[in-house]
């Protein structure tokens, strides 16, 4: 059961799930608002055409294309929500780190923009697969990404995934130095959760990077519930 990895820290997991869901729902709201206005403008143009003004058919075509584009964007976000929701289905399975990193970065875009931070992501061409707990992995990645977004390097945070053979390595750039000396540098549940998943996190590059190492094959510890 997924909750055996969390124990007393389950509320942090719920808070993470809530925060991600809120980000996604806000994105969907925005796309719906754009679709509302674009569709409304089509209605306005048809109305004035009925009053005698010539209808700009090219403009209407463009608006229809714009609506289609916004629907695609909203659909992408809904798929992210779906993947997040299903990440708690299994406590242990093969996790595609390319997809997981991509999902967390995608969901975090609006948060990053609200902080004036640009997110850059680099993924390897081949999938990096690890055996782990998908929801917990997402949580760990997001916590360090969130810290980095609070202290970016020149307004930018880079997230780089590499295949290191026996492990996947996610490097998140940020100014972690100030955070190292803060009591909140490492969230409370993280060390225990990382240990249970075999994940190691080291601050390197004079604390300009958090390097998260996820073993590809790790015997997830049986935890007493």
């Amino acid at each position: 059961m997924a909750e055996t990895y969390w124990g007393e820290s389950a509320k942090e997991g719920l808070a993470f799930f809530g925060k991600m869901s809120a980000c996604i729902s806000h994105d969907i709201k925005n796309y719906l608002a754009i679709i509302n206005e674009k569709a409304g403008l089509v209605g306005d143009l048809l109305f004035v055409a009925e009053q005698g003004r010539p209808l700009d058919t090219e403009k209407v075509k463009k608006l229809v294309q714009d609506i289609s584009q916004q629907i695609k964007r909203a659909d992408h976000v809904v798929r992210s929500l779906n993947r997040l929701a299903h990440s708690v289905d299994k406590s242990r399975c093969v996790v595609d780190l390319n997809e997981t990193v991509g999902l967390i970065v995608s969901i975090s875009q609006r948060l990053a923009a609200s902080k004036g931070v640009r997110l850059e992501m680099r993924l390897p061409t081949s999938a990096v697969q690890v055996e782990s707990n998908p929801f917990s992995l997402m949580y760990i990645l997001f916590l360090y990404l969130d810290k980095a977004m609070s202290a970016p390097n020149d307004g930018q945070v880079k997230v780089i995934l590499k295949d290191m053979g026996d492990e996947g390595q996610v490097t998140i750039s940020g100014s972690f130095e100030a955070l190292v000396h803060s009591s909140e540098a490492v969230p409370a549940p993280i060390p225990g959760l990382q240990e249970k998943l075999g994940v190691t996190v080291k601050l390197e590059g004079n604390f300009g990077e958090a390097v998260i190492r996820v073993p590809k094959a790790f015997k997830l510890k049986d935890i007493q519930s």
Binding site: N30, A33, I34, E37, K38, G40, L41, D44, L45, V48, D66, Q70, A113
Partner: peptide, 16 residues
Amino acid sequence: DDEEEFVTTLAERFSL
């Protein structure tokens, strides 16, 4: 509004 597609379309509807 920081969403340009939204604000430009709304502005056009206001102008109409």
